[in-house]
Amino acid sequence: MNGFSVALLVFSGLLFGAYSIAVLEQLITLGLRHLGVALVSPLAEAAALLRQENLVPRGADSLLFRSSPFVALTAVALAALVIPLGPGLFGFDPSIGLFYFIVVLGPFVIAMMNAGWSQNAKEGLFGAFRAAAHLLSYEVPLGFAAIGPVMAAESLSTVRIIEAQAGLWYGVWQPLGFAIYLVSALFMTYRRPFDIPQAGSELEGGVLAEYAGPRLLLFSAALRAIFFLLSAMGVVLFLGGWHGPLLPGSIWFLAKTFALAAFLLWIGRFLPRLRHDQMLSLAWKGLLPASLINVALVGILILIRQGGGS
């Protein structure tokens, strides 16, 4: 696939992903009966944001303020390149695909921080610091949780990880890793219950307090797109990617991604928003030791299988 069609695929995929996550959010809160409302609401909000004025607060660091949504979208787009939607349907497949994915999402947090900082408002600054705390918390557990599939597949490449799950999905025999990955994904995408840096009622919107109009739309799209991507990566790592009977691989992949996203959104509703030092405690005192235990467990299981099988 040449560069242009790859770019097109990625952008349309991201747009679709953002829209579908928004629809899922509406469905989860309103219930399945309001499907029509759920389908139209995101478009309505997008239209409303597009016709608003594109303002920049006085005293804001305008370079950072204007560029933050684009940096966020760029990070998300670059990360989307390595997610294989189906056999042969991916942007590019470097041999370090998973590592590349985790690393490229770092600048997304930078974009959130820039957004908070550049607003020249205290709410934004508080939000920026809270967002930075997120980055420092999720990165290690996420990496360790992802090490399980890497060890099992003996490769960092997303395509190879999927191919290695043809027999048994990793989520089945690495449940701890799966759970840690899901929690880290919630951290990373600033979702309930970890949405304190940008939630509406927390200090007037946190990092997004001063954004209005089209820039806010870009940021919302980026946030939803990254949630979509992380669900997709969860499917790649733990739920067998595109494997599934009868239907073509991409359909399965999308279906599993939506199911995982819906599940994450749904469990988020049960928990009140955690205070951000509670989140940090959870990450460092809970997730990190659990992920180390997970590495040990998975290693032992692999050695047993290798010893028994070969």
Binding site: E53, N54, L55, P57, R58, A60
Partner: peptide
């Protein structure tokens, strides 16, 4: 929140 310096009125 600080005052604005906006670009472009809203479209109708």
């Amino acid at each position: 929140i600080g005052k604005t310096e906006a670009s472009g009125p809203g479209r109708v």
